[in-house]
């Protein structure tokens, strides 16, 4: 097979912009948490369930605040303030905690990249959505309910004690290493069921999904380029298993409204036609260039990026 010439109007940079951004922010957050165990860095204390920045600004996990309210019927000002900051951020920006801050998300994301490279280079398999839907997406809402019900009856904030996110951060920050067993277990599990924790199990993610439904910062669809190639790259890559192309980028949608969308930007980075973008406002629509859904366009169902480039070249030629 000969190597095809690269696509001329391919506007993407060599690096994956959003992947880079979100790994950077998550790494910074984790690094600050780890540094806080040293006496010379007293400005970023705590773990994911409760952090304190500069000794003044409290940041409290909203699920921790809910569990605290249900379990101990108390709501100190610090909690209201700390959770309020995150809830406000989630209302405006969606579940960005999942994509950009969560330390466990960072690890599972890297885990998934390793898995993808291994499958491509070693097993020579393309990454398909395969077993992603083995666990239904609603089970994390059920888990969220279970935690609240449990806290209601027993007055124990169970998720704060046993959440893999907290266990992971505590292992790195406080040295209670036994929590890494759970994290390792999830990492192994995700080689068989990709991103099952974030997509189907994490109650904190469910909490953020509920709050971030009406967020203004979302993956929006450029009507000028949407629906042209139909390469399915976005939905093959989407860690949350959202049917981006078949559900959203065909004409008729302005943005991805699925509550699961964690704003990770993976779909934006893989899109060969710059259809998607993380934006506060919709893409400007120009009636003239809007695509006619009746026009027959090439439909590619191959996962290989080279095939996409090839057909796009053909289409543009």
């Amino acid at each position: 097979m000969t190597r095809r010439a690269p696509l001329t109007n391919h506007r993407q940079p060599w690096y994956r912009k959003w992947v880079l951004w979100r790994r950077l922010t998550a790494t910074i957050f984790l690094t600050l948490l780890i540094l806080a165990q040293f006496a010379w860095f007293p400005w970023f204390t705590g773990t994911t369930s409760g952090t304190n920045i500069l000794g003044v600004v409290p940041i409290i996990d909203p699920l921790a605040a809910i569990e605290l309210l249900v379990a101990s019927h108390s709501m100190p000002t610090t909690i209201i303030l700390g959770a309020g900051i995150l809830i406000l951020a989630a209302l405006l920006l969606g579940p960005i905690f999942c994509g950009f801050i969560c330390p466990l998300g960072l690890v599972l994301d890297l885990n998934q990249t390793v898995r993808r490279v291994f499958r491509k280079r070693v097993l020579r398999k393309t990454n398909r959505i395969a077993a992603t839907n083995a666990v239904p997406e609603w089970s994390r809402y059920a888990l969220l309910g279970i935690l609240i019900g449990f806290a209601l009856v027993t007055s124990i904030p169970l998720f704060q004690a046993l959440s893999p996110i907290n266990l992971f951060v505590r292992a790195l920050v406080m040295g209670s290493l036994s929590g890494l067993v759970v994290v390792g277990g999830i990492m192994v599990l995700e080689w068989f069921v990709p991103r099952v924790w974030c997509r189907a199990l994490c109650p904190l993610g469910a909490c953020y999904s509920i709050m971030g439904q009406k967020a203004i910062w979302r993956v929006r669809i450029n009507p000028e380029t949407a629906g042209q190639i139909r390469c399915e790259q976005c939905q093959i890559r989407c860690p949350m298993g959202i049917q981006i192309m078949s559900g959203y980028t065909l004409p008729g949608h302005e943005s991805i409204t699925h509550p699961s969308c964690i704003r990770c930007g993976d779909c934006i980075d893989v899109c060969p036609n710059s259809v998607l973008g993380l934006r506060l406002r919709p893409f400007p629509t120009d009636k003239k260039t809007q695509i006619d859904p009746d026009v027959h366009l090439p439909v590619i169902q191959s996962a290989s990026k080279e095939d996409v480039h090839c057909s796009l070249n053909k289409h543009l030629a």
Binding site: A142, I146, I242
Partner: peptide, 28 residues
Amino acid sequence: QEQGLTRRQAIAAGGGIIAGCVMGLGYK
């Protein structure tokens, strides 16, 4: 595609709360 929170997710959450209460009682 499911637009926003669907009935299924609401049922899951509600059922979860009941299940959580039962589990809590069992734990107690």
